[in-house]
């Protein structure tokens, strides 16, 4: 059992937990993720490690409530326990001194970009950051990102904070003025795809693919993606890949695999309507 030692609401439907998991906190690296399960009936869901503190033994996760499991997670309180919490999974981000790196976070994707940007800065890079959200209310971790960036750009779709527009617009501007050696972009798939369209093919543009996952250890293949025309498993070969090599059509298509079932899960309330759960249990 893994204790939630801190809960914070960062924005509407975006929450932060610090979870006590000392063994994972000791080993976690930027770019890696955990898989958690709330309770016996729960689904296993992947969330990026947004921060880690080996001394306090905690892992920070930030999640957006988008469906059944993240909604239930949002209802949990400080002091509650998660049944399962496994990690650190996936490959760590490649961190070297590349020169100038643009780090882009969209929506809840700002959280996973943060530890990568911090590590890149520590490795000697000039870090230019762009963070974006739908509106000012949905913008998270501006302060954290500004602390580690030599320059921070903010965009919102409606202009309620920073510049009005998309992160990819700002990227295009930066690219026209500055020589950039590497780009990191994490956020919704359309955002990452847009970034890859703007970024020239000769600049490595790392994206983190949030595919559907089950085990996270390379055993099931649910997370498969096509990179450079080869099938890869996001959980063990990734989750980061060079976005220029990713087949985005497959990423978008596979995200819809369980779209109907997700609706059923969300509307399902035990004991109501057609629900058979408890009748089954009585048997």
């Amino acid at each position: 059992m893994f204790k939630i030692v801190l809960k914070e609401e960062l924005a509407p439907k975006i929450k932060l937990f610090k979870v006590l998991a000392p063994e994972i906190a000791r080993k976690a690296r930027p770019g890696q993720f955990i898989i958690l399960r709330i309770d016996e009936e729960g689904e296993r869901i992947p969330l990026t490690i947004a921060n880690f503190d080996a001394d306090a033994g905690t892992i920070t996760i930030i999640f957006q409530e988008v469906g059944k499991t993240t909604d239930l997670l949002g209802l949990m309180e400080q002091g509650d326990f998660l049944l399962d919490f496994v990690g650190p999974l996936g490959m760590e981000s490649e961190i070297e001194n590349y020169g100038t790196v643009v780090c882009i976070g969209g929506g809840v994707g700002v959280a996973p970009v943060f530890p990568i940007a911090r590590a890149l800065k520590e490795a000697g890079n000039t870090v230019i950051s762009i963070i974006g959200a739908r509106n000012s209310e949905m913008l998270i971790w501006k302060q954290e990102m500004s602390g580690i960036s030599s320059k921070l750009h903010v965009t919102t779709d409606d202009g309620s904070a920073g510049e009005k527009g998309f992160v990819s617009d700002v990227l295009a501007e930066i690219l026209s003025q500055t020589s950039v050696d590497r780009i990191i972009a994490i956020g919704p798939v359309p955002m990452m795809e847009a970034v890859c369209r703007v970024a020239p093919k000769n600049i490595t543009t790392m994206v983190s693919l949030n595919t559907i996952m089950v085990d996270g250890t390379g055993m099931c293949g649910a997370c498969r993606v096509e990179v450079n025309s080869e099938t890869k498993f996001a959980c063990v070969d990734g989750p980061e890949f060079d976005g220029h090599q990713v087949n985005w059509e497959i990423v978008k298509m596979r995200a819809n695999m369980f779209i109907n079932e997700e609706k059923i899960a969300l509307s399902h309330k035990c004991g109501e309507g057609e629900c058979q759960c408890h009748r089954k249990n009585e048997k």
């Binding site: 009936e41 729960g42 689904e43 296993r44 059944k68 499991t69 089950v214 695999m257 369980f258 109907n260 079932e261 997700e262 059923i264 899960a265 399902h268 035990c270 629900c275 058979q276 759960c277 089954k280």
Partner: peptide
């Protein structure tokens, strides 16, 4: 046992 158990299958 979906949706009592939350992992879906199609």
């Amino acid at each position: 046992r979906f949706p009592e158990y939350q992992t879906p299958i199609r």
